[in-house]
């Protein structure tokens, strides 16, 4: 507490006990993931062991051949990467419009976009499935089963929150800056890209991480809208557990490998992301 007096013992002890237990709860699966990924198969098929009988990196080599993990990885990378880039660019335009212009329907737009967040994914999964199938039948553009369809879907998932976060960041960039740019002869878009965007880089990075995490972790649409060649990690990882022998050491190794990019990104950019994620709720 911010009191000038030192907190009483009851408080310090409660804090110590609570935080210790919580740390244990949080880290338990992380420990299982890391330690099991370094175990030989015998250690994960028998009774659970806290410590490996021997340390091996074999699972990290085998994961690539047991299931086509590299292909899933590449698919996830393409889908999440493309969805992130598109989502950020589109969100930048939309947030700039909302932040810098007054126009009819502004409130309707922001409320509608944000409220799509509350809809159950299952509600528009079925129709979207049909829309993609029918667009494919009518025009020959394969959206269903393709990476393109998934990219299109995922980028709209992160769009509402991204726009919301960026409006906050753009609002905090002083208007004098873009006005000065306009005086210097930049058009509105010039002002956006030469002044506002560079000033809001932390916010844009935060939005990009958020969009990437959203696309990288999505399961529901990936399970319906992909086929053998376009399967992403979210679905592909389950391929290990349907085999006759469940190679838990490999599953843990693969889980760790697919987690590292997002967890590292998140922790590195934690401060920006936290500020952006919480801005809306606290305001």
């Amino acid at each position: 507490m911010s009191s000038p007096l030192a907190p009483p013992r009851s408080f310090l002890w409660s804090r110590r006990i609570f935080l210790t237990l919580l740390t244990g709860f949080v880290l338990l699966p992380v420990y299982v993931m890391v330690s099991s990924s370094l175990k030989p198969l015998a250690d994960v098929t028998g009774k659970f062991r806290w410590l490996p009988t021997e340390l091996t990196i074999r699972p990290y080599i085998d994961i690539w051949s047991t299931v086509p993990l590299a292909r899933y990885f590449l698919n996830s990378l393409i889908v999440a990467g493309a969805a992130t880039v598109c989502s950020v660019v589109i969100a930048v335009f939309a947030a700039y419009a909302v932040s810098r212009y007054d126009f009819r329907g502004k409130r309707v737009f922001t409320v509608t976009v944000l409220s799509t967040q509350m809809f159950p994914g299952i509600l528009f999964l079925l129709p979207l499935f049909l829309i993609y199938v029918n667009i494919g039948n009518a025009t020959g553009i394969a959206l269903f089963g393709s990476r393109g369809g998934l990219i299109l879907t995922y980028l709209t998932f992160s769009l509402p929150f991204s726009i919301w976060m960026l409006i906050g960041y753009f609002d905090s960039v002083p208007r004098d800056l873009d006005e000065a740019a306009l005086v210097d002869g930049c058009g509105p878009l010039g002002a956006l890209f030469r002044v506002v965007v560079p000033a809001a880089v932390p916010g844009i990075v935060a939005v990009a991480v958020y969009a990437f995490m959203t696309a990288w972790g999505e399961v529901l649409f990936a399970s319906v809208m992909t086929n053998d060649t376009t399967r992403t990690l979210a679905v592909g990882l389950q391929g290990y557990s349907t085999l006759n022998d469940v190679y838990w050491n490999q599953i843990m190794a693969a889980s760790l490998v697919v987690s590292v990019p997002v967890v590292a990104g998140f922790l590195l950019l934690q401060r920006y992301l936290v500020a952006g994620l919480t801005a809306g709720a606290v305001k």
């Binding site: 919580l22 972790g217 990690l233 979210a234 389950q238 697919v258 997002v262 967890v263």
Partner: peptide, 12 residues
Amino acid sequence: LFLVPYALPVYA
């Protein structure tokens, strides 16, 4: 550390 469960991909 506390943010790790939030950052991990759900399926992993």
